[in-house]
Design a binder for these strands. Sequence first.
DNA 1: TCTCATGTAACTTTTGATATTACATGATGG
DNA 2: CCATCATGTAATATCAAAAGTTACATGAGA
Lengths: 153, 153
Amino acid sequence: MRPNSQLSGVLHVLLHMAEQDGPATSDMLALMMQTNPVVIRRIMAGLRERGYVRSEKGHGGGWTLARDLATITLRDIYDSLGSPSLFALGNRTENPDCLVEQAVNAALDTTFREAEALLLSRLGDVTLAALSADFHDRLQRRKRSRKGQTRHG
Amino acid sequence: MRPNSQLSGVLHVLLHMAEQDGPATSDMLALMMQTNPVVIRRIMAGLRERGYVRSEKGHGGGWTLARDLATITLRDIYDSLGSPSLFALGNRTENPDCLVEQAVNAALDTTFREAEALLLSRLGDVTLAALSADFHDRLQRRKRSRKGQTRHG
DNA sequence: TCTCATGTAACTTTTGATATTACATGATGG
DNA sequence: CCATCATGTAATATCAAAAGTTACATGAGA
């Protein structure tokens, strides 16, 4: 698995949960995501704290969505994961004595803060409902293209 | 040293080179950057290919700037490093068969591409000369504040 | 009360970045 | 020339963060 693909991963999980009736167990989700159930539980813990999902123990237990997808944005999910650093580039040192380094850091910090603000703002604009709608669009398109193939082939 | 601080590091090195007469050896720069000379050479190799710096072997050799700092942008330096991935977050899988994953990837890709465009554009606006000027400002301010301390203390 | 499922701490593995070693190439000064 | 200095680069080692795994505790049904 790629590094830092948690956001991508959780979104995948959540959309699948939306498609299915009843709770999904960590084992099922882990199988879907080709990872370990414990990893799923760890990731979902943050979402549960914020009330986006619920978990039930015992027979018939598992994970269920606790909110309408239209009320959850990608930004919410990102924050639930602990707002991990968005950027792969960092400063060599923080709070350096060297004035050269201070000048470098200041320039880079400004730039990256701007980009971060844009990113977070955009993530805040996209709801899980929008993602789900896009998924259903793709489903329709695939069905139609399959029918087309059959008719002409 | 922090991960992926190459950009920050090279900028630091370049500004220091601008302050000094004559070539700077990899050993000197490595000492300044608290790293290994070989790391310096590796990083500088990309800059040399693009003509931003020159290297000379033998006695009195080392690294020198080959261009006016006003003609080099942070974007140029970033590209010289091989345009490493800017973001710490990635997609779980590329080109997935799963339509859910496709929808997720599409949403994230759009968002990150936008942020990347903004970032690169901003990096292209800042010249090394501007960074150097900021450094000299800081130098003046520090001097003044030191004088002030002496006078009042 | 047995099984199923989550909750979590501890540990191991993997991976990417960085640092180091070793040796080759080329330039300069005596 | 040749000893020395400096870069050039491949190969290797180290390190830290992320991901995965194991082990065991807790709680909810059937």
